[in-house]
C-alpha cells in the first residue's frame, strides 16, 4: 500500500514546491517572497519526513530538523530586514 502511495505523495509535495516557487519568483513585494520561501522550507521538511519514513532511514529526520531550524531563522531575519528597509 505505502509503496504505491509514497510516489504520489512525493509528487504532490514536489508540485506544491513548484507552485510556491512561482510565487517566489513573481513577488510582487518582498514579504510575498518571504512567505513563499517560508512555505518552501516547510514543504521541504514534509518531503524529507516522507522519504525518511518510506526508506526507514532515520538520520534523514535530523536533516529535516536542521532545515526547519534554518528556515525559521532565515524567515525572522528577512522579516527584520523588511521592517527596517521598507517595501522594495
Amino acid at each position: 500500500m505505502s509503496e504505491f502511495v509514497t510516489p504520489i505523495v512525493l509528487v504532490m509535495l514536489a508540485v506544491a514546491i513548484l507552485i510556491a516557487l512561482v510565487r517566489l519568483l513573481a513577488g510582487p513585494s518582498l514579504p510575498d517572497r518571504v512567505v513563499a520561501m517560508d512555505l518552501i522550507g516547510v514543504l521541504t521538511v514534509g518531503l524529507i519526513v516522507v522519504i525518511a519514513a518510506a526508506t526507514e532511514y532515520r538520520a534523514l529526520l535530523d536533516a529535516a530538523i536542521v532545515i526547519a531550524l534554518v528556515g525559521f531563522v532565515a524567515t525572522v531575519a528577512y522579516a527584520r530586514f523588511v521592517e527596517r528597509e521598507g517595501e522594495s
Binding site: 505505502s2 509535495l13 506544491a16 507552485i19 510556491a20 512567505v35 514543504l43
Partner: peptide, 25 residues
C-alpha cells in the same frame, strides 16, 4: 499511513495553491 499522508500532502498542495492565487500578502 497512506490515508494520513494523502491528506497531509493534499493540504500542503492547497496551501501552495492558496499562496499562488490569493490576492494579498
Amino acid at each position: 499511513v497512506a490515508v494520513v499522508w494523502l491528506v497531509g500532502a493534499g493540504f500542503a498542495l492547497l496551501a501552495a495553491i492558496g499562496v499562488l492565487q490569493l490576492p494579498d500578502v
